[in-house]
Design a protein around this nucleic acid. Structure first.
Lengths: 234, 234
DNA sequence: GGCCAGAAGTGGTCTGAGGACTTACGCTGG
DNA sequence: CCAGCGTAAGTCCTCAGACCACTTCTGGCC
């Protein structure tokens, strides 16, 4: 087995065996090198792999630690790769989002939470009042994200959030020929979701959310726009 | 910005900008170091991060390439981290699997595919005839995996597969007090799913799949067994 | 008791060298 | 001319050593 793979397997085994639980601290790098029988370069490359996957965290000057191993945090790491997926793959991911978000929206509707409804109403008021593409995207994310969070499963919230972020790179809401029509359809979809939640109707909420996201898929398939290339600074 | 982060951002930007598409080859490491203004160590650590996320692939002696950027392949990389998630997080993930697999099973039922039904029947015949834990797990994965594949969305298949693999580390099917009862309930659940698919009844298929996985969640919550610690060799 | 400076511990980065593997070229023999 | 093969170039992989940057703890000072 190659050196880096050996180090990778060793580090993972230390966690999988229970020797190191969430938040635990690894021995210093020189000690790990000795224990695993690899050079420091190879150990560090293996550690970078696990850090990229959200399994461990290196803190400069302090040490290397096992992460919380929380699935929501681990899934969030996927945005680094998902943001690079081409349109064809994004459409497959949007189906995942549609199914999961319909489920989460239904769960949110089953709850009795006036504060949530008020918050969602405020978001939609702002959303319907703006035509700025960036603001639309941010408010849309806040609307759907709040609903998913109310659904009660942080992992679902994280997964749908990553996919939503990827879709947002496409310029559906840039001013253009169909801007008004698209914006109105989108706004109506949001109101339908909120109405279903306010009526405590999980089935209607799921249907409304599913239809809303399916509409986004249709726009993407039809427009096939080029994604924005700019990446945020890390 | 730290050196490794600078290299990471640079590599991602080369892909995001469209300069390098799926399958494209990167310049040699020394050239990239010069271009990005970092040392080879830092560049290699950044490359390892992206390789762990399934975005790039380094081939010894050949070069470094952009991956196919296929969402199913990228999601498969998650098994490295998902396999380390503790039970509490696995339950959140199982809800994701339940929702997605119900959806995929419904899609499979909507198709008319006698070959699939025959294949699934054969798998269940073997599954009902064995009591070996490893064989049960393999056949169960083949059964559900075949159905998801028939659902038509490879990304859904990959995601459910990763989660199923994680759940399989728990020893539900180890011989014990409730082994017989659990096995019978599981077998009946599989037959119900197959029957719904054979009857071309998507709604029934979704319900059967959802109930089957929900049952697994209940067992996991009740038993809270310790996961097997052994990891497969890479 | 609180604050601050120094020291120890630890990860981050760079440089240089040699090894291992893949690929492509050109030679040889048919 | 073509197939087979060996060599050479190209590229990534691993190691070793040194130094830097950041965090944390300790001890003394006010």
């Amino acid at each position: 087995m190659a050196a880096t793979d050996k180090a990778l397997a060793g580090l993972r085994q230390m966690i999988a065996s229970g020797e190191l639980g969430p938040g635990a601290k690894f021995p210093p790098e020189p000690e790990l090198c000795d224990h695993l029988g690899v050079s420091r370069s190879s150990l560090r490359e293996a550690a970078r792999s696990l850090a990229a996957l959200g399994v461990i965290e290196s803190r400069h000057g302090s040490g290397t630690y096992v992460s919380a191993l929380d699935p929501a945090e681990i899934i969030s790491r996927f945005s680094l790769s998902v943001e690079l997926i081409p349109l064809e793959g994004v459409l497959q991911l949007l189906e995942v989002r549609r199914v999961l978000e319909a489920h989460a929206t239904a769960a949110a509707a089953a709850r009795q939470d006036p504060e949530l409804e008020e918050k969602l109403g405020d978001i939609l008021d702002k959303l319907e009042a703006t035509t700025d593409a960036g603001e639309i995207q941010a408010l849309d994310a806040e609307f759907h994200g709040s609903i998913c969070a109310a659904g009660g499963n942080p992992t679902v919230t994280a997964l749908t959030g990553v996919i939503r972020g990827r879709g947002g790179h496409y310029r559906i809401f840039e001013p253009g020929a169909d801007f008004e029509a698209i914006k109105q359809t989108s706004d109506r979809g949001h109101r339908a979701i909120l109405a279903a939640i306010a009526h405590r109707d999980p089935a209607a909420a799921a249907t409304a959310a599913s239809a809303h996201i399916a509409q986004t898929e249709l726009w993407l398939r039809a427009l096939r726009p080029q994604p924005q290339v700019a990446l945020e600074d890390d």
